[in-house]
Amino acid sequence: MNGEVPNIKKWVVFYPVYINSKKTVAEGRRISLAKACENPTCVEIADCCNHLKVPNAIEIDKAYPRDFMQRGRVRVQLKKEDGTLWNPAISSRKQLMLQVAELVPRHPGRTKKQEAPSTSSAAAGSSKPGKGGRKKR
């Protein structure tokens, strides 16, 4: 290679819409609804790829062709120059999508956002109805 800059043009393209549970298959979702996650971002996907030790690069200036308002995508390198896999557990882009969709809901930035509303709803729902109810005669 020519120094530090890898040729990311050959890397796999990963749009957030591929694993978005809010999208239909016609809108671009590529994995099952049960395994998809809600509104993933490029940063979350890139962080998950880093966690899986797979090289990646975020391209913010790119848009998804079916929905050009959806900005950003992540380029991922599944194989090294010699053809071996970066992560032996991920041999295809489908496996990568499933792994990332599983990790995104546990992303540190996402778990902090979800904690705030859940604590207030837990306090509101703590009143329990009394035992027994009304007796019939």
Rank of each mutant, 00 (worst) to 15 (best):
M1W: 01
G3V: 06
G3I: 07
V5I: 13
V5N: 04
V5T: 12
P6K: 03
P6Y: 03
N7T: 09
N7L: 06
N7Y: 08
I8F: 15
I8P: 09
K9W: 14
W11T: 01
V12T: 14
V13M: 07
V13N: 05
F14N: 01
P16C: 04
V17E: 08
I19T: 07
I19E: 08
I19G: 07
N20K: 07
S21I: 07
S21H: 05
S21T: 09
S21C: 11
K22P: 00
K22Q: 15
K22G: 13
K23S: 13
T24C: 09
V25Y: 15
E27S: 10
R29K: 13
L33G: 00
A34H: 14
A36P: 02
A36Q: 08
A36R: 09
E38V: 15
P40G: 03
T41P: 00
T41Y: 06
C42Y: 12
V43T: 12
I45V: 11
I45G: 02
A46R: 05
C48M: 10
C48Y: 04
N50W: 08
N50I: 05
L52A: 06
P55M: 01
P55K: 03
N56C: 12
I58P: 02
I60M: 03
I60S: 05
I60T: 12
K62L: 05
K62M: 05
A63I: 08
Y64E: 00
P65T: 05
D67N: 14
F68C: 06
M69C: 06
M69P: 00
M69F: 11
Q70H: 14
R71S: 06
R71H: 08
G72K: 02
G72H: 04
G72L: 06
R75H: 06
V76D: 00
Q77I: 02
L78Q: 01
L78H: 02
K79N: 00
K79V: 08
D82K: 02
D82I: 00
T84F: 01
T84Y: 00
N87K: 05
N87G: 06
P88H: 04
A89G: 05
I90L: 07
I90G: 01
I90P: 04
S91K: 14
S92R: 10
R93L: 10
K94Q: 14
K94I: 04
K94F: 15
L96E: 01
L98Y: 15
Q99M: 14
V100F: 13
A101P: 07
A101G: 07
E102K: 15
L103W: 05
V104S: 04
R106M: 08
H107T: 09
R110G: 05
R110A: 08
T111S: 12
K112F: 11
K112I: 12
K113H: 11
Q114F: 11
Q114P: 03
Q114L: 15
Q114M: 14
A116L: 11
P117H: 13
P117K: 14
S118T: 07
S121Q: 11
A122L: 11
A122F: 13
A122K: 14
A124K: 11
G125N: 14
G125F: 15
S126K: 12
K128V: 05
K128N: 04
P129R: 13
K131I: 13
G132L: 15
G132R: 13
K135L: 14
R137G: 12
R137C: 08
R137I: 02
